[in-house]
Amino acid sequence: MKHFEDFGDLSAWPVVGLHDEYSAGFRDEPHSHSRAQLLYASSGVMSVTVENASFVVPPQRAVWIPSCHMHSVSCRGPVSLRTLYFDEEATGMAGRDCHVVEVSDFLRALIVELARLETQRAFTEREHSIIKLMVGELKETPDAPYAVPMPSDFRLMRVCQAIMERPEETHSLDELARKAGMGRRTFTRLFKQQTGIGVAAWRHQVRLMEAISLLSTGRPITSIAFDVGYESASAFTAMFNRSFGVPPSQYLSSRVSD
Rank of each mutant, 00 (worst) to 15 (best):
S253L: 10
S234I: 01
Q250L: 13
G229W: 03
P248T: 06
S257V: 15
F244W: 12
A235I: 07
S234F: 11
M239A: 12
D258M: 13
T222Y: 07
E231R: 09
D258C: 13
D258G: 14
D227M: 12
R255S: 10
P247G: 02
E231Y: 02
V256Q: 14
T222R: 11
P248N: 03
F240K: 04
F240H: 00
I224R: 05
S243C: 10
I224V: 11
I221H: 04
Q250A: 14
Y230L: 03
S243A: 05
S243D: 04
G218T: 06
V228T: 01
P220L: 05
S232Y: 09
I224E: 07
S223I: 01
F236D: 08
F236C: 08
F240E: 00
V256K: 15
S223N: 11
R242A: 08
T222F: 06
S249T: 08
V246G: 04
G245L: 01
I224G: 11
P248V: 07
Y251Q: 00
P248F: 12
A225Q: 01
N241C: 14
R219K: 12
G245E: 09
S243E: 11
G229I: 05
V246Q: 08
V246A: 05
G229Q: 02
R242L: 06
F236H: 00
G229C: 02
S253R: 13
S253Q: 13
A235G: 06
P220E: 04
V228P: 01
D258L: 15
S249E: 14
M239L: 15
Y251A: 10
S223E: 10
A233H: 00
V228Y: 04
V256R: 14
V228W: 00
E231N: 15
L252S: 10
F240R: 02
R242K: 12
D227E: 13
R242N: 09
D258Q: 15
G245H: 03
V246K: 10
S257G: 15
P247S: 00
R219D: 13
R219A: 11
S253W: 06
S223V: 05
G229T: 03
L252Q: 11
S223G: 08
V256G: 12
A225M: 03
V246T: 06
L252K: 06
G218N: 09
S254Y: 13
G218A: 12
I221D: 06
A238P: 05
P220H: 07
I221W: 09
F226V: 06
D258V: 15
L252N: 05
S254F: 12
S243M: 13
Y251K: 03
F236N: 06
S249R: 11
V246F: 04
S253F: 12
S223T: 09
I224D: 08
G218R: 04
P247Q: 02
S254L: 14
F240T: 05
R255K: 06
P248Q: 08
R242I: 09
T222D: 12
T237P: 03
R255A: 12
V256I: 13
S232L: 10
I221A: 02
A225N: 04
S257T: 14
P248D: 10
V228G: 01
I224W: 00
T222W: 06
L252W: 10
S243V: 11
S223M: 07
V228K: 02
A225G: 03
V246H: 13
T237I: 00
S223Y: 00
N241W: 15
A238R: 02
D227W: 11
T237R: 09
A238K: 02
Y230W: 01
V228F: 01
F236W: 10
T237N: 01
S257D: 14
L252E: 10
I224C: 07
